[in-house]
Design a protein around this nucleic acid. Structure first.
Length: 253
DNA sequence: ATGGTAGTTTGACTA
């Protein structure tokens, strides 16, 4: 079973890229973030023709998440259902193939100390609450976490020290997710670090490989023995009109 | 030098 997560940075701008990605990897499940469109703008017919059901939570201009599945999901839920703010389309989860799979788009946080920063910290705490309530489910929590968990997840950690993607408070919040028994799939298979999923469009960051690893697949404890491989599809960041994020792919036996 | 790219939208915001 192959599971992928990818921040596409506009599913309308990346429609052909997405269809080529599905054809190339034939994943069983794909979590998408930053659709940047309401549901009617999602290329549902093309994705269906490629063999996928689509659970979509859209929003105009910003955010937007989806889970594509080859099997029809047994259940779909959007948001955290915790009584908190649900105005931003950042979370959708499905039950499929005996798994609970979630696509999360964690707020960037803009600048430390801003209102958006406070919202990011609150959102990460709510995400932890949601994950805690899934205790016992075989959980695959995927997404753009906007957190590089450790210095080995940045090409130039000194340049990013104290910023919204590397700040100790978001690293601690990420750590509190792992404390629930969730495992970072790429870390399991590539403990040496130096593997990145996002490169800024500016400053020739990709050619210089000046990246960060901020997109993750977290697996509940029971799934860890089934995780045969985890990788970053760096090639997807190459060529014409790429997303600024590369997909992460995980193989479950 | 305090910039730079990209998407949405068409001015300004977000990342």
């Amino acid at each position: 079973m192959r599971i992928a997560t990818w921040n596409v940075n506009s599913v309308k701008a990346r429609r052909e890229r997405l269809l080529a990605f599905l054809a190339r990897h034939r994943p069983d499940v794909v979590c998408l973030q930053e659709l940047k469109t309401e549901e009617p703008g999602f290329p549902r017919e093309e994705v269906l023709a490629a063999g996928y059901h689509a659970a979509v939570l859209g929003q105009k201009t910003y955010n937007g998440v989806a889970v594509l599945t080859r099997e029809e999901p047994a259940a779909v839920s959007t948001g955290f259902g915790d009584g908190g703010d649900e105005t931003q389309a950042r979370f959708v989860a499905v039950d499929v193939a005996g798994l609970r799979v979630a696509s999360a788009y964690v707020p960037n946080g803009q600048t430390v100390g801003s209102e958006k920063w406070a919202y990011k910290l609150e959102w990460l705490a709510r995400l932890r609450g949601w994950a805690e309530r899934q205790a016992g489910a075989p959980l695959v929590l995927c997404g753009d976490f906007n957190v590089a968990p450790e210095d080995r997840d940045a090409a130039n950690p000194a340049a990013w020290e104290g910023t919204v993607l590397c700040h100790e408070q978001v690293r601690a919040a990420f750590g509190r997710l792992l404390d629930l028994g969730l495992a970072d799939a790429v870390r399991l298979h590539h403990p040496e670090g130096g593997l990145f999923t996002w490169w800024d469009y500016r400053q020739l960051a990709f050619p210089k490989n000046d990246g960060l690893r901020i997109d993750h697949v977290l697996l509940s404890e029971a799934l860890v023995p089934r995780c045969a491989a985890a990788r970053v599809d760096r090639d997807e960041r190459k060529g014409k009109l790429p997303s600024d994020h590369a997909p992460v792919l995980v193989e479950l036996s």
